Simulated assay, not measured.
Amino acid sequence: MAGPEHADPATLHIPVLLDECLAMLAPAFTVEKPILIDCTLGMGGHTHAVLERFPNVTVIGIDRDPEAISIASRRLNTFGSRFHAVHTTYDHVDEVAQEYGHDGKVEAVLMDLGVSSLQLDEEKRGFSYAVDAPLDMRMNPTDGPTAADLIAHMSAAELTRILRIYGEERFASRIARNIVTEREKTPILRTGQLADIVRRSIPAPARRTGGNPSKRTFQALRIAVNDELRILEHALPRALSSIRIGGRLVVESYQSLEDRIVKDIFKRGATDQAPPEMPVIPPHLQARLTLLTRGAQRAHTQEQEHNPRSASVRLRGAQIIAPWKE
């Protein structure tokens, strides 16, 4: 079976909530030559749809994964100069806007967070607990420590903190202790080894509900390896400051920690900052965003049945109504 690097673009997956994302972005594309920054290019699904549906739009696609850049660039080469790829992490979105935007501003930014289908489906990347593979989990496989490196050197206390905070794992301390015990016997270098330790660490009654018991541990390590939450916290205000008035930021999150960060910054931006007793709110204290969703939009039942990965998605959007300044 052909790997992702040889995939036929016509057979690549359709992104989650694609029509909803495009509808939310569309009002930002009414100017003459709008620019969208796709902060999480992946295999180019969102970008392809935007370029096809909105012939006046240019898309700048960011991804830290060089394989994703390669696949998306081949997939999108028919759009010529309307697409540009940038190999970096998306917390550099403001620098990308400065280089490609009109006077440093763009009309819209899209973020589809978390691990991509490319990374999940390619066994050698080590993101999946379902297949035995090297314990890597790096979104950029050429840079930084692997998951195996982290669990080889972290203390039980550090591992517990990561599993508890990033994975919301209630058996974090037990899993961490067992990891430390096992690594003293033999290096933990494979996903299968880690999944087995997790399974043995969680009491049998708890393993019978909530899906695969390794899910939370693998999520936590992936977030730690790729520094995902810190990057997101830095990227959101930089994206908002890079979008012109009337433009839009649309974000898809797949776990509660990401969604909480997005929700909090959107709520803060959509709220006047003046004290309640102030009769007239000065411009610098007025709300800078208008929210485009009531709460978070979820995938409908039909889409969840067609694509199980859509079950956890939370879609939020905001329109810029005043310059964003931290």
Rank of each mutant, 00 (worst) to 15 (best):
A204S: 13
I179D: 02
I188T: 08
I179W: 00
A133P: 15
I188E: 05
Q193P: 07
I188L: 11
L236N: 11
H234K: 14
P134G: 12
R208Q: 14
R230E: 14
A224E: 01
P187M: 11
R183K: 14
R138Y: 08
S173F: 02
E182P: 11
E228L: 11
S214W: 00
L232M: 09
A152L: 04
R207L: 00
I179M: 04
F218L: 05
A157V: 10
D143R: 11
A157Y: 05
A204M: 08
D149H: 06
L194P: 03
Y166R: 00
P187V: 06
H234A: 15
E182V: 05
L163Y: 04
A224I: 02
G192A: 09
K185S: 14
R216G: 02
T160G: 00
R170Q: 14
L236W: 10
G192V: 07
E169W: 00
A148V: 00
R238D: 13
A235G: 13
G192M: 07
V180S: 05
E228G: 11
E184K: 12
I202H: 00
A195M: 05
I165T: 10
R183H: 08
R230K: 15
N226F: 02
S214D: 03
A156T: 04
A195K: 02
L221D: 13
L240M: 14
T142H: 15
F218I: 03
E184S: 12
I197A: 12
N212F: 11
D143Y: 13
T142F: 15
T142A: 15
L135G: 06
G211L: 07
R199S: 11
I175H: 03
G144Q: 06
L189R: 12
L232I: 09
L221M: 15
E233G: 10
R174Q: 13
E182I: 02
M154K: 14
A156L: 03
K215D: 12
T217W: 04
R200P: 05
T181R: 14
A148Y: 00
I151F: 01
G144R: 03
E228V: 07
R138S: 09
P141I: 07
S201G: 08
Q219F: 01
A204H: 07
T146W: 01
A156D: 05
A172D: 10
R161I: 01
R174M: 10
E169C: 02
E182F: 04
R230D: 15
G211H: 09
E182A: 12
E233R: 12
E233V: 09
S155M: 09
D136K: 08
F218R: 03
D149G: 04
A152H: 05
S155K: 07
A172H: 08
N212H: 15
M137T: 04
F218D: 03
L189C: 13
L159S: 06
M137Q: 07
